[in-house]
């Protein structure tokens, strides 16, 4: 019976305007981008192991500027004679790894800080939010540069640098969601019953704000992939010759009019991946808010 009730409630509160035949379409909205994400992940992480692709670095200059479709080089080669397809797959590995790590850090640290801030309010709230304001006002470029220069440019350090920006973003969302939650009667009830704060946070706040944070994480994946690309593009991220989509675009830009495909391929990879994450995030958001 409870199941039936829940189902009725869902139907009643779904956003209006949907068509009767849109059921399969709605699931397609999740399945297609999720499939694309899965495909990209699979291609980048498993592809190089099972596909006959040459290594992404150490090509011979004799093989430079080969056209797409050349034997053994699906997308041709770059000025250093490296296989473009292989570089795109390996570049994707680093982009995805960085994006996942940055978002997990943001989710864990930022989500907790934001929930604490929103739940406790008062001085704690003020201090946490002010510190995060400073971080937000601080240009990512400078920090990344500093990290890259003092600790060395590497994947780990890019993650650390970018986490400084994902943490405040997650914290803000988590705080706003917690504040909204705090106005609901059951929270007051829990507090009145003398439930300890940590327990309220863990049992009532966390599960309720999780959907919003996870949804933002999907959008965050897209954002981080783009920013990581930008840093590499400016030479501040993953250092060449190791491939990344950003540094491939930067490299191709130098001969944009002569060999535009050097730019186009990594751009396509970046675009498709980011689009898939964005679509996934948007659909999830629409569904959660339609609850």
């Amino acid at each position: 019976m409870a199941v039936v009730d829940a189902a009725t409630a869902t139907v009643a509160s779904r956003p209006v305007g949907g068509r009767a035949g849109a059921w399969w379409l709605r699931n397609l909205e999740i399945a297609v981008p999720a499939g694309v994400v899965a495909l990209v992940v699979l291609a980048c992480f498993v592809g190089p192991l099972v596909l006959p692709v040459p290594p992404p670095v150490g090509g011979s200059v004799l093989e430079s500027y080969l056209d797409a479709g050349s034997p053994g080089h699906l997308l041709g080669t770059d000025p250093n004679g490296n296989d473009i397809f292989s570089r795109i797959l390996h570049g994707g590995q680093s982009s995805l790894t960085v994006a996942v790590a940055v978002n997990l850090l943001g989710l864990a640290v930022g989500g907790t800080l934001g929930a604490l801030s929103g739940y406790l309010g008062g001085a704690t709230d003020t201090v946490i939010m002010r510190v995060l304001d400073v971080l937000i006002a601080f240009p990512s470029l400078v920090l990344t540069l500093a990290v890259a220069q003092s600790l060395g440019a590497s994947q780990t350090n890019t993650v650390l640098a970018l986490a400084f920006f994902s943490i405040p973003a997650f914290a803000r969302i988590s705080r706003a969601a917690t504040l909204r939650l705090r106005e609901l009667p059951f929270m007051a009830a829990a507090q009145l019953c003398g439930t300890p704060g940590w327990r309220v946070l863990a049992r009532h706040v966390a599960p309720n704000i999780a959907p919003q944070l996870i949804t933002f994480g999907m959008l965050g994946m897209g954002i981080v992939i783009v920013i990581e690309g930008a840093l590499s593009f400016l030479g501040l991220g993953i250092p060449p010759p190791a491939p990344s989509w950003g540094n491939m675009i930067a490299q191709g830009q130098q001969s944009l009019s002569a060999t535009p495909m050097l730019v186009v391929w990594p751009c396509v990879a970046l675009f498709v991946t980011v689009l898939a994450f964005n679509l996934l995030g948007e659909t999830l958001r629409a569904r959660w808010s339609g609850r």
Binding site: G222, V226, G229, A230, F233, G246, I249, Q253, L256, S257, P260, V263, C267, L270, F271, V274, L275, N278, L279, E282
Partner: peptide, 22 residues
């Protein structure tokens, strides 16, 4: 708009250059 949001601005800038300038 969701497509546009998925294009990084450097990607867009380069594509604009490629199309309108080159």
């Amino acid at each position: 708009s969701i497509t546009g949001l998925s294009v990084a601005n450097y990607v867009l800038a380069l594509l604009l250059v490629l199309l309108f300038a080159v």
